[in-house]
Every structure is written in structure tokens, then in C-alpha cells.
Simulated assay, not measured.
Amino acid sequence: MPETSRRGLLFGTAAIGAGALLTACTSNEKKDEPAANEQPVDDKPGKAVTIGFAGPQADHGWLAAINANARAQAKKYSDVTLDITEGSNDTAAQIGQIDSLINKKVDVLVILPADGKALTQAGLKAMRAGIPVINLDRIFADPQAFRCYVGGDNYGMGVNAGKYIGEKLKDKPNATVIELSGPDSLELTKQRTQGFDDALKNYPNIKKVARQAADFTVESGQAKMAQLLQAQSKFDALWNHDDDQGVGALRAIDQAGRDGFLMVGGAGAKSAMDAIKADNSVLKATVLYPPIMASTAIDLARALGQGKGVSGMAGLEIPAQVTLFSAVVDKDNVDEYLPQGFS
């Protein structure tokens, strides 16, 4: 769905692609007077904003968390009305839902397309109708189809998984790793694999010997992991792109009675973090792909609808891109990240 690679500079938990973080007003400025190039931005009620939210069907833990985060963030603001669609994985149905929001003349649209390429025309239609679009996660094929992109760092996710495994195996001669990816039809899967492969280049003692693509579901994770286990009698590490399909992968591993390797997951499900904390399985870490990006999208949509900039950033406009950082969670920091884990 071709999302372009989002490898922006990383600032703590987020990366801003079209703006730089800046300090607040200098100490000799009055606190009630913003700098000349800034508008005052705060959480006080302002102009009423109706935000339309259209996403795919929440048939996956991460997608359900996206919807939950969007709703929770909108409820924080008395000046925001959230009009959220039922969600669909059918392209025609999602286009119809977006058309309905356009006809309602919402102030801003937040769209997480089931397929970025297929939904590009819907984004363009909204923008041409004068409704700014926040494109969430799966990017449209045409940059004119959105005002701002908010998403995770898929390439960085793969890089951080590769670095974590690399550091664990750097002293092991002839180490081997395998990969359980997401659907190869998604650009984000290609980015995660590319990041992982690029990170492993820094560890010449490690070789990736097998890869299977699953579908981000428990069932596909179990089936594809069973195939990997049958084909590979021994390996040292597994990089699994998604914690939902990781549930199935762990089932296959348990059924096969296999151990002697470490597993790194992806996304940051609570079940994965619980397993990491318990430290009683091969799963030793997960690389975050934070669904709190939906909260960020709501904040930016509100600012956009009210004609505000973003606190802590220069300029009168919101940024063109925000990319969240993919932190690695293991037993050393799992307690810190557990509150962010999604069911």
C-alpha cells in the first residue's frame, strides 16, 4: 500500500519530519507573550472542531488500540466532537465511509486506510473539498492526499530488532536467525525487513537463514512458525514482526517443544510484555509500534481545525510529518512500558 519510508530524525518518542523541536520562549520574554513567530497554544477550550475518523476494521489488537486511543484523546477536549466510522477492510466500503464524512463537512479527517494506495483518491477528494487530512500509519501514494502524516518508524523498528539480536549474539560464531514477517503486500513489512537486514550487516557472524510471511493473525503466525520450525532444526534468534501473530508463533514453538533461541516481537502488546516480564519463554523483547499515534493524530487534527500550531514548535502550522520512535522493551525496562501495552 505503498507507504514511503519514514526515517526522520528521532527526538525522544517522536520524530518531526517537517519542523524542528525548539525551546520555549527565552527567560527574558514575558510568559504571557508568545514569540513573534508563534501563536499561543494551550489545552484551554477553543473553536469547536468536528474530527472525522475512518479506519479499517478493528480485527487486530493494535487496530483496536488505535480506535481506543483516538476516542480517549478526543474525550479530553470539550471542544472536539469525534465522528468515527465503523471501520472496514473492504476498500469500497471504506471509501464510502470517507465520502459520508466529507458530505457531513467535518472540519478535519483522520484516515488510517486499510490500503494506502487504494484509498489515495479518497484522501485527494477530501483535500480538494477543503477538508484537511491527517493520514495515519499507512501512507497514501500521493502526498497531496494529506496535510500531515502520523505513523510509526517501520524501518527503525527492523533496525532496532536487528541491533538487539545482534548485540545478544555478537560473540557467538556462525549465529543464525530467522524472520516471521507480516504480509509482503504491505510496504511496511518490506521496510521492517529492510531495517532488520541492514542492522545485521553490522554483525558479520550472524546470518539470516529463513523467512516466512504471516498475516498479522494468531492463526497465520502459528501455521507459518510451524513451517519455519520444521525447516530449521536449529537457529539462535527469531524476529517476529507482530505480537498478535506472535501468540500463534509461541503456540507452535511450545507444541514443537523447541527452545534454545531468543525471540523478539513487534508492536508492544500487553501479552508480549507480560511474557517478557515473566521471563519464562523464548520471548525476550518486543519492539514498539505505538498505537498512541492515534492520540497524536487527534491532537494535531484539533490544532489544525483551530488554526493553531503545536506547542514547543516553531511556526503557525502543525508539522507535515510525525514519526514515533520504536523503542525496544525487554526485562530491564518492561515495567516502564507496561502501561502502554495494548490488549
Rank of each mutant, 00 (worst) to 15 (best):
T81S: 13
Q144H: 07
Q222Y: 13
H241I: 14
S185L: 11
K190R: 09
D137W: 01
F53W: 09
L229H: 08
D244N: 06
G307H: 03
I66S: 11
P40C: 13
S78F: 08
K30M: 11
A252Y: 15
I98Q: 01
L186R: 09
E3Q: 14
K30F: 06
D335K: 07
P56A: 10
L136G: 05
N103E: 00
A297Q: 14
K277V: 15
G156A: 03
I206E: 05
Q227K: 13
K31C: 10
R6Y: 02
K172E: 11
E219Q: 04
L82T: 02
P132K: 00
N240S: 10
D137C: 05
V177A: 08
G257Y: 05
G19W: 03
V322S: 08
L324I: 15
A118P: 02
Q255W: 03
K168P: 10
L9H: 04
L124F: 07
D83I: 02
N160R: 05
V322K: 12
I298M: 02
D79Q: 03
A303I: 01
I51L: 01
D115E: 12
D142Q: 12
S88R: 04
I178K: 01
P45R: 07
G152N: 08
L101K: 00
D137T: 06
L324C: 15
G61E: 08
T81A: 06
T323S: 15
A327L: 07
L10R: 11
D83P: 06
A161C: 08
A58C: 04
E33P: 04
A129F: 00
F196G: 04
A175H: 03
S100L: 01
L238H: 06
S326Y: 09
G52E: 05
D215V: 04
V329G: 03
N28M: 03
I206V: 15
E317G: 10
K277E: 14
K190A: 14
N333A: 12
E219N: 15
Q230C: 12
L169A: 09
G246F: 07
A65M: 13
E219V: 14
A58T: 03
V328R: 02
D171V: 11
V247M: 13
A213K: 02
V80P: 02
D90L: 12
T26R: 06
G182F: 01
L283D: 05
G307A: 06
P34I: 04
K117M: 10
A249D: 13
E86Q: 08
L63E: 06
V150D: 13
Q97N: 12
A36P: 11
D242Q: 13
L338V: 12
M225C: 11
N28Y: 03
D243A: 13
Q144F: 12
W239C: 10
K190Q: 09
Q194T: 13
A24F: 01
A65V: 04
V108G: 02
S27T: 06
Q39T: 06
A72P: 06
